[in-house]
Computed example of a mutant assay.
Amino acid sequence: MTRVAVITGGTRGIGAEVSKGLHKAGYKVVANYHRNVEGAERFRDETGIPVESWNVADYDACDESVLRIADKYGPVDILINNAGITRDVVLHRMPKEAWHDVIETNLTSCYNMCRTVIPGMRERGFGRIVNIGSINGQAGQVGQCNYAAAKAGMLGFTKALALESAPKGITVNAICPGYVDTEMVQAVPEKVREVIRSRIPVGRFGDPREIAHAVLFLIADDAMFCTGATLAINGGQYMS
């Protein structure tokens, strides 16, 4: 049986490489996107991976989309919570919208998506959930109280859900990437990029395919003994 995997934010950056990696490995992948229709359609045409649009910060949209995916492709056995945004500004200048937007998209989305797939996973006795966090949820970062709080919250969420789900054959793990060479990092001014790179012991930015490799390990059928774990992939920049 080919397992169905949903990747939120699955058409760009790390999410796109995760989608492609799972597709290549034989999983039936559905990549979520929200607003970038042109980019999503281009990704679909280039990879052959189906794309579906919904807002992960909206519970009803998540619920309806998971039901739609189950009807079209089969029940969701694998969920990768990767969607995320940034609204960087120091706290004493941060408008409430910047706080709420990031918390809802980056953290509440984990509840929204997991809540919709968990009942089916429990009934079938199998599930794999991987939450994509961030080095900045572990170490903090200036101007990212909202983002760091959301990503740190994701780690606690991962551990609690792992404890609840282990007896039902469901694993829940987190990956915390460091600075990975995606469009977001490429948009940073070169002088700033050099400063960041100088702080990474391996001397380079990560490759998004390295994150995809880790996801493939965590979702494997025979990876049942790994749950509640946080895998840091950051080139040695932050060790906990």
Rank of each mutant, 00 (worst) to 15 (best):
R3F: 12
A5V: 08
I14S: 04
I14M: 06
K24T: 15
Y27R: 01
V30W: 07
Y33T: 05
H34N: 14
R35D: 06
E38N: 02
G39K: 00
G39N: 00
P50L: 04
E52H: 15
Y59L: 08
Y59M: 03
D60A: 14
S65R: 10
V66Y: 14
I69H: 10
K72L: 15
Y73S: 12
I78V: 14
A83T: 06
R87H: 13
D88F: 09
D101C: 01
T105Y: 02
T108K: 06
T108W: 09
M113P: 03
M121L: 12
I129H: 08
I129Y: 07
V130P: 02
A139N: 11
G140T: 08
G143P: 07
M154S: 12
G156V: 01
A160C: 13
A162Y: 11
A166F: 09
K168Q: 15
K168E: 13
G169S: 07
T171C: 07
T171R: 05
N173I: 05
P177H: 08
P177M: 07
D181L: 14
Q186F: 13
A187G: 14
A187S: 15
E190I: 14
E190W: 09
E194P: 10
I200V: 06
P201N: 02
G203M: 02
G203N: 00
F205E: 00
D207N: 13
H213F: 02
A214T: 08
V215R: 01
L216W: 04
F217C: 04
D222H: 10
C226L: 13
T227K: 02
G228V: 04
A229E: 14
A232E: 14
Q237A: 15
M239Q: 10
